[in-house]
């Protein structure tokens, strides 16, 4: 009884803000509901419809492609930065702070900033590239070509998020006991050996954690696409969450949107379970 009282506040919080919305969403996914008319029970129709919806699969595919490109950039880039900046010298501390700065900006704000920077006429990206002679005419980055839009968004996301992984990696590298590093120096290990044989294995858990977080974040990508391309051209840059949003709100298909959310949540849950099992087995 006393134990229940202790977990009570947290339990209440989870019930109100996680369990209730989830149950409500499951209920919504079984109804046809346009928000202006009362919900009508349709059973599993929304789910069968999702499997036949080509645009849904296109958006899943696009989200996967985005995730497959952005995750390695964030992990490898963040890790290289951490290797460079892990020691505590004034220059490294300063650089670390600067790299981490964009993490504390809201994703919406940074997307607006990059929307402006990538604008064809008013943007400074085109201006810099023109002045450096990389391009000869202004490039229309966003909303016309799917790959080019994706490239621009990925650049903005890497700028925004890379510091997050870096900080966790720096923490993990600094937590390696100094006697291990010293022993390896005595044994004559060179820099490359120290990285591959000592630092990498001892920080593997953190690498897996950051990978998990960043994959989930990328699979749920919404803000940057909503702001920078709004799915253009022709919904080619619509991520799965953006597609859920499109159905739920502009198209007023709340039930269908809820069903898509459920499928998405199940997919991410499955991925997370696999990832956690791998982490446990590797036992770094």
């Amino acid at each position: 009884m006393v134990g229940l009282a202790y977990v009570g506040p947290a339990l209440l919080f989870v019930l109100v803000f996680t369990v209730y919305p989830l149950v409500r969403m499951a209920w919504m996914s079984l109804h046809n509901w346009s928000l202006i008319t009362p919900p009508r029970w349709v059973g599993l129709d929304n789910y069968t419809r999702a499997f036949d919806d080509r645009q849904f699969w296109v958006s899943i595919r696009f989200t996967m492609e985005y995730t497959l490109v952005v995750t390695p950039l964030l992990i490898v880039g963040g890790y290289l930065l951490a290797l460079l900046l892990a020691r505590n010298t004034p220059v490294r501390r300063l650089t670390r702070t600067v790299v981490f700065t964009p993490v504390v900006i809201g994703l919406g704000v940074s997307s607006l900033l990059w929307y402006w920077l990538f604008s064809a006429d008013f943007g400074l990206v085109n201006k810099v590239l023109l002045d450096l002679g990389v391009i000869s005419d202004p490039v229309v980055w966003l909303g016309v070509d799917a790959d080019r839009s994706n490239l621009a968004i990925i650049a903005s996301v890497v700028w925004k998020v890379i510091g997050f992984g870096m900080i966790l990696f720096v923490g993990a590298i600094q937590a390696i006991p100094t006697d291990i590093t010293e022993a390896s120096l005595v044994d004559g290990a060179n820099a490359r050996q120290r990285v591959t044989r000592i630092i990498l294995p001892l920080t593997l858990r953190t690498v897996l954690l950051v990978t998990l977080l960043s994959v989930i974040g990328s699979l749920l990508a919404f803000d940057q696409f909503y702001i920078m391309t709004a799915g253009q051209p022709q919904n080619e840059t619509a991520t799965s969450v953006f597609f859920v949003y499109l159905n739920s709100f502009p198209y007023l298909r709340l039930g269908y949107g809820a069903a898509l959310s459920m499928l998405l949540a199940l997919g991410i849950l499955a991925f997370t379970v696999v990832q956690l099992l791998l982490t446990r087995r590797s036992h770094a």
Partner: peptide, 23 residues
């Protein structure tokens, strides 16, 4: 070398913010 690389990183990371403040 480390200082030069750090300077390059700092420049790239700060430019968007600096441009934004200047604008």
């Amino acid at each position: 070398l480390v200082a030069a690389v750090c300077l390059a990183i700092v420049t790239v990371m700060l430019l968007p913010l600096v441009f934004s403040v200047l604008a």
